[in-house]
Amino acid sequence: MFAFIVRRVIAGVIMLIVMSLVTFLLFFASPVDPAQFACGKNCSPAIKEQTRKALGYQKPAVEQWKDFMVGIFKGRDYPDDPALRKAAPQLVAHCPAPCFGYSVLNSKTVNEEIKRAFPITLSLAVFALILWLLGGVALGCIAALTKGSFIDRGLVGISLVLYAFPTFFIGLILLKFVSIKWGLWDKPEYTSIADGGVFSWLSNLFLPAVTLAVVFMAAYVRMTRAFVLEAMSEDYIRTANAKGLSKGRVLVKHTLRGALTPIVTMAGLDFAGLLAGAIITEYVFNFNGLGKLVVDANRTYDLPTIIGTVVLAATFVIVANIVVDLLYAVIDPRVRVA
């Protein structure tokens, strides 16, 4: 088991290194000059060149990637060019290891940006995950147990419709009607637990989390229904019934356990994807999470932020994959390595 984890982690790290290199190469393959964006309003060729040097954009892409990798382990100082640092030591910003870079546009290290934005995204993703898992699995079970009835058809039909709705549409409806027009819910505005307490944190997260959860839930209802139905036709369910177990116990202990593996896989990967930022939901509700950070960075060609968030997102997905694989072993004894 330990060897398995070590192998997976090493493979993951290699994958991350390759990803970051590819991101650098792709970034510089574009015809846009990133220094132009970072240069500001009163841009002259001289200032532009200086900005370029401050960010290290004048170096070849591979060289910059090396600087980035070194920064992760040793930390970096900005501006990148030693001559510039010497000229204006009061403007030097130190970015301690692990350094993802320094964003001139935000005048902050990327780490600080991520540290600020990540709790918002994490709260949203966790809340949404709980909502959609509970709702999706429960409704999926109901649909499977009442297969062919009006309840089943209704649930499947509604989830198909909801699944087809884009997130921004559901988000806008909730915001515009439920919150603003009908005043059923305060307009969400992220407040951390430290600022407003648990209740305010939860209540502000509710509408965005529902927005996110609805689409996922629709998918999970259909998936749970399919897997529960499949498990119900297994021989071991017949055995459980033959023992005289109650319906509830057969469903929870035997059928759901059998249907759990694919649901856990999907949930892990979906959750990891959300940790990289729920772009649309965050934009609709104006939450300053990772999703918004990513989009803004891409609009302004803010290379350090782009690289930092890409590596972070990739890390989440790789870690989630490893966790899901480990969960398999917890769920299914046949997978356990002796």
Partner: peptide
């Protein structure tokens, strides 16, 4: 009580 044909599939693998 009943005993089934294929005991591998008739027992819950988990």
């Amino acid at each position: 009580a009943m005993i089934f044909q294929d005991p591998l599939s008739a027992m819950h693998p988990y």
